[in-house]
Design a binder for these strands. Structure first.
Length: 268
DNA sequence: CGCTAGTCCTGTCTGC
DNA sequence: TGCAGACAGGACTAGC
């Protein structure tokens, strides 16, 4: 569910908790822990040194070799609650009790997400692709990862080992903005196509962040509130509705098992 | 190695 | 109203 702009929105709101200490952590279901390189108890009494994002991962840095990492999967939420309050919803798997009067709540009905207790961040993320909003994500890099490949370009945009953070919504929206069909073999893109796609990806992700993410169904930010980008979607979720550019009905097909939305007229 | 299909889960919506 | 089936912002894996 949450892609780069959604996780980024959450991370920014959580910054107010940098410096706070962890009183204790409630793990309500043990199997939500995907990796334990140290014990949960070791996190008690630690101060939050930094909160950051890598791809779609949410990272709490608590020390040199102490990282508490969350992934929200398809249906995950991560929000702040005054410590006096109790989370109302079902499927709350983790509550981080801070000493600043705030509890951090991790909820994920489908449990495609998870929690990792990681010592070395660099090792954990060593196979992750480049950050699409960082300077090292250049048009040349995009060309390098797309050329000679015959998989649909959309599939490669979703591959987190190539580019980190793009999901189904922003892939479809970026390809629309670039005027490129999502089922084009990646290797068939011209240099011009790639430049346009490169610009489009960055533009769409930045817009997504600016509007505080897309709430299509589940997503809520760190204040448990909806985002705003859903009102600006041009193709995603708009099957059979008129293309905002040419008026033709938006097509929906399946690529790599994911539903894919595009305009047969504006994207070629 | 590149690529596709299947799998993990629960909740919600659609159509009969 | 009930029920079956499809579908959902993700990502691993097995197998061709």
């Amino acid at each position: 569910m949450p892609e780069l702009p959604e996780v980024e929105t959450i991370v920014r709101a959580l910054q107010s908790n940098v410096g706070a200490g962890i009183k204790h952590i409630e793990i309500k279901r043990e199997d939500i822990l995907r990796l334990q390189e140290f014990s949960v108890l070791e996190l008690q009494g630690q101060n939050i040194k930094n909160i950051r994002r890598r791809g779609k991962f949410l990272i709490f840095e608590l020390g040199r070799d102490l990282n508490l990492i969350f992934h929200l999967g398809m249906s995950g939420r991560f929000y702040m609650l005054a410590s006096a309050e109790e989370p109302a919803e079902k499927h709350v798997h983790v509550i981080v009790h801070l000493n600043n009067g705030i509890n951090l709540v991790y909820q994920d009905p489908r449990r495609f997400g998870g929690v990792w207790l990681v010592k070395e961040r660099e090792r954990f993320f060593r196979n992750m692709g480049r950050e699409p909003l960082s300077p090292d994500f250049s048009a040349t890099y995009l060309e390098d990862i797309l050329k000679y490949r015959k998989a649909p370009v959309k599939n490669l945009l979703l591959n987190q080992n190539l580019i980190s953070g793009i999901g189904n919504i922003y892939a479809d929206e970026s390809l629309f903005a670039a005027g490129i069909r999502p089922d084009r073999p990646a290797g068939s893109l011209s240099r011009q196509d790639i430049k346009k796609l490169h610009r489009s990806i960055r533009k769409v992700l930045r817009q997504g962040i600016e509007l505080r993410g897309t709430t299509f169904r589940d997503y809520r930010d760190a204040f448990n509130e909806s985002g705003g980008f859903q009102d600006y979607l041009k193709v995603y979720g708009r099957h059979n509705q008129p293309c905002p550019q040419c008026g033709q009905p938006i097509e929906r097909i399946r690529i790599g098992g994911r539903s894919t939305h595009f305009c047969t007229n504006c994207q070629r």
